[in-house]
Design a protein around this nucleic acid. Structure first.
Lengths: 215, 215
DNA sequence: AGGCTTGCACGTACGCCGTACGTGCGTCAA
DNA sequence: TTGACGCACGTACGGCGTACGTGCAAGCCT
């Protein structure tokens, strides 16, 4: 059986598959090689080092997201769509999300979402400085939301049990946390995401509205 | 010279000092032991394992932040103050920030900021569900902002070569990124943080205003 | 055809890592 | 005095990233 030749693409794919199956901590060069049925050092013929490999993973995940941008739609809808497209990462590759978010890429895959967002904001009437500001604000919110969703951040609600168990919190010290424990323990990630997204979009709509109307 | 006896506190302090001096990647049990002039295994008399030690680091950093809360101030000011207090982490312990943010603690240090924030939001007139929603939104924004501020990569480069170098971006592929490169390359973190913070506060002020006035 | 370069898979080895386990010493209670 | 205990420490094991060398097959030049 002439196994398909090793390649950067196959290595990256194996890494992604491994991360999603066993978590980011399980990733090692030896593990990936074993997964592919090759020797460890063979990987280095296609990837300079582990760091570059992880960049490749981030890039691959990022380039999978589908931006269906309708240039004729209202700019607020375009922003909504782009934000949701980005959030898809948390669904499609939850355990790789941290990697994607914590590596800034200056490659095409990394720049494309930025380019689209800036274009949309400029089309909404923001000047360059404002567009950059808005973009940074959205990125901060989205990144923070994704990290909560995939469980990196103080999330108050992994799907099950126990971040804040009502009985484990002293009501005298933390009355609010204690009484709101049922609410803190559950989280509809999509609803939470949409809530903040709407809030931000409405807030910045007012800014353009002051100057030139909603469109 | 009777060196001060080893203790969990001294170990955690050494870890923090090491992280800030050489970055989170430099942290290893051997390195910390060397820093303290003790054998590696001595650490395990005071800390069960590395993970718990890192939790201790996060906890220590978190408990250093100063919440100067004035219960008589307008709730919007109290929210502002709490958000800024949290951002201080990025100033005081930039290279530990990722650690603090990526470990959820159910200890006092971790719950205190949550308790305060919830109390403030409730005092603003939000019901429990809304308070939790607002809190999650603020946390997402703040976490995202801090991660941008500290550079999200292990190596904390000063202020240079941040996102994009103008000459390395193809203007045909990325017209907006290219033309806005000067703006993307620099970032006044405090101003950016305040901008989004104001936007969020104003946005949620409207929500309470609809029901019961600004106060 | 014969020789040479090149590309790639692979094994070995080094210096790190976290930590399980055992040992020895100082102190303090009985 | 003796026993237990707390704590510093050494050794050792399995796993990590990767530098380096080796060998083999395919393609290129005369």
């Amino acid at each position: 059986m002439p196994t398909e030749p090793l390649s950067r693409g196959r290595i990256v794919a194996a890494a992604i598959e491994l991360i999603e199956r066993e978590g980011a901590d399980a990733v090692s060069m030896r593990r990936i090689a074993a997964e592919l049925g090759v020797g460890v050092m063979s990987l280095y013929n296609h990837v300079p080092n582990k760091d570059a490999l992880l960049n490749g993973v981030a890039e691959a995940v990022l380039s999978e997201i589908e931006f269906t941008d309708d240039p004729d739609a209202h700019w607020t809808d375009r922003v909504r769509m782009q934000a949701r497209a980005f959030r898809q990462i948390a669904h499609d590759h939850p355990r790789s999300t941290m990697l994607v978010v914590s590596r800034q890429l200056h490659s095409t895959a990394g720049l494309l979402p930025v380019e689209r967002a800036l274009a949309t904001l400029r089309s909404a009437g923001f000047d360059g400085a404002d567009a950059v500001r808005m973009l940074r604000m959205f990125i901060a919110y989205i990144v923070g939301s994704l990290l909560r969703e995939v469980g990196v951040t103080p999330t108050f609600a992994p799907v099950h049990n126990r971040l804040v168990k009502a009985e484990s919190v002293d009501p005298a010290l933390f009355p609010e946390v204690s009484s709101l424990a049922p609410l803190l323990d559950q989280c509809d990630h999509e609803a939470e995401f949409e809530f903040g997204l709407e809030l931000l979009i409405q807030a910045i709509s007012v800014h353009t509205g002051r100057r030139e109307g909603t469109r």
